[in-house]
Design a protein around this nucleic acid. Structure first.
Lengths: 154, 154
DNA sequence: TCTGTCGTCATCCTTTCGGGTGATTTTGGC
DNA sequence: GCCAAAATCACCCGAAAGGATGACGACAGA
């Protein structure tokens, strides 16, 4: 972080020096303000973007997963996982819709899901659309991710 | 993060005020090149930083922390999830490809990933195609599922 | 019986994905 | 510096996914 600021300042200083130098050397003062201004603007805009990006660290969000303990032995959550029924109902997701969500999470295509549940592909699409809507997802991958965050999926 | 932007903005504002004041009070226009230059520089630096931050979006990484509950008290079970690097290399998946896989798992579209990584959508598609191939997946949802099974994703 | 919810299915249309191919540029290791 | 791997980008095309809307039967509960 400090390095960046330092470099930033240094470049600024150099730029100013260069400007001074050119000004006194060639007396190019007339109408050059706009040019120099544009130059400075462009340079600092680029530098600013760069700095902004450098300054942006990875924000981390910690999700807590509970692991049950049976007879003193901890069992991985994956084996114990129970979908949060309350959350499901809170979100207004029906059992059938949730079923589709689970199969989506397993990486199945709509067609495969339709075949598995003995319904038409259109039906699957309807259910998935609804569940996406209720989860606030725009894509199935996002639906899976949100489903996990809501405790609906392992 | 926000502090920086705030400070920069403040300095910009102060500079503008000072400039206005001097200009209208004493008509000190000559030799103000440095002032104007500095002002422009500051302004565009702020703009650049803001732009940079805007463009970067919320780069967040979800870390899964497992917790056991013993006698009603949560106890950390396993630490932060660490992707299995060996497995990744065994599968011949490059870092970049893996990076795309992670973003896919987070539910982003190819376009969003492209925007986030500052590459073209085509590039994202190439990477994803390759990673799907290496994982043996036909869909992105399946890739995520397989990624989990291989210990590459949480 | 009427109403609301759920599950089912369809059609039309747009967007996104994914496969295939080829090419150029960057990078890392020797 | 040279070479191979990695990363980048483009274009085409078909398949899959998703949005919007409408419809119809089953069933539960007021």
């Amino acid at each position: 972080m400090k390095r960046h600021v330092l470099i930033y300042g240094l470049i600024g200083g150099i730029l100013i020096s260069v400007l001074k130098w050119t000004e006194y050397r060639f007396l190019v003062i007339e109408h050059s303000f706009e040019i120099y201004g544009g130059l400075i603007a462009a340079t600092f805009a680029v530098l600013g973007i760069w700095l902004g990006l450098k300054l942006t660290g990875t924000r981390q969000r910690v999700i807590v997963k509970q692991v049950s303990v049976v007879k003193g032995v901890s069992v991985p959550a994956s084996e114990t996982f129970v979908p949060d029924e309350r959350k499901r109902e809170d979100l207004g997701i029906t059992r059938r819709e949730f079923e589709i969500l689970e199969l989506i999470a397993q990486g199945l295509s709509n067609r495969e899901i339709a075949g598995k549940l003995y319904v038409s592909e259109n039906t699957v699409k309807t259910h998935s659309s609804r569940v996406f809507d209720k989860l606030g997802a725009k894509r199935r991958t996002q639906a899976v991710q949100l489903g996990k965050e809501f405790g609906l999926l392992p």
